[in-house]
Write a protein that binds this DNA or RNA. Structure first.
Lengths: 107, 107
DNA sequence: ACAATCCATAGCCGAATGGCTATGGATTCA
DNA sequence: TGAATCCATAGCCATTCGGCTATGGATTGT
């Protein structure tokens, strides 16, 4: 059953990609070069990971001259929220807050 | 950055494993044999996947005679919620800022 | 104009992944 | 007791994955 959530789950399954996403979410839009400086892997590897994150809509790119600025798109986490909502009986409070935030941001 | 969330993300990255978890969460505790009947893969493959889910604490096994009953442990999703909540906070900040800005502009 | 920088793509490689069959121990049934 | 069932493990194989270097187009700086 390949779903929409599949790309997102797979994209976030790798620690390097999660770190890239985390950094973009925390520190805001930045270039591939800036990301590479802190990623601990080569620039082509960073580019490849960003490509996978982009397919999952977790990041967005904004080319500007010879540079490309990437930024996080946390709304792309929504499919995960949807999927987990089926099993979320336990942490109901935390979850409700998160979900309503996402819906607000989606508008 | 290998975190606690890593096992959970990796475990859920595979569609077959997600389907197993979904079925256990939806229909409750059941044997490997019952799971195999609906998984579309062989029994050893199901067992292997269950092993990975178990390492991530997403399922629990209860041997009984020659059978083994598995059940879902949705609490194991908590690390994912926690991870995502980091970005919920991030969103709320920005959202709150935007909201207050809009109010100011409205005056 | 030339040199340097940024980044994406291509191509390679070893390790991990997800599937299978074969097997065998443990249990249950006839 | 003997046959059948349940399930985990082992071992195999093809594919995917995550890293690298090499390269080259585009842009920017000198």
């Amino acid at each position: 059953m390949p779903t929409v959530a599949d790309d997102v789950f797979k994209a976030l399954a790798d620690p390097t990609r999660r770190a890239l996403f985390e950094r973009l979410a925390r520190d805001g839009e930045q270039t591939v070069h800036a990301l590479t400086d802190h990623a601990g892997v080569s620039q082509p590897t960073v580019s490849k990971h960003l490509g996978i994150l982009k397919i999952a809509n977790l990041v967005r790119d904004r080319p500007e001259g010879r540079e490309t600025y990437y930024s996080a798109q946390p709304q792309a986490l929504a499919p995960l929220i949807d999927w987990m909502s089926l099993y979320a009986d336990f942490w109901r409070e935390r979850f409700d807050r998160l979900e309503s935030l996402l819906k607000k941001m989606d508008q």
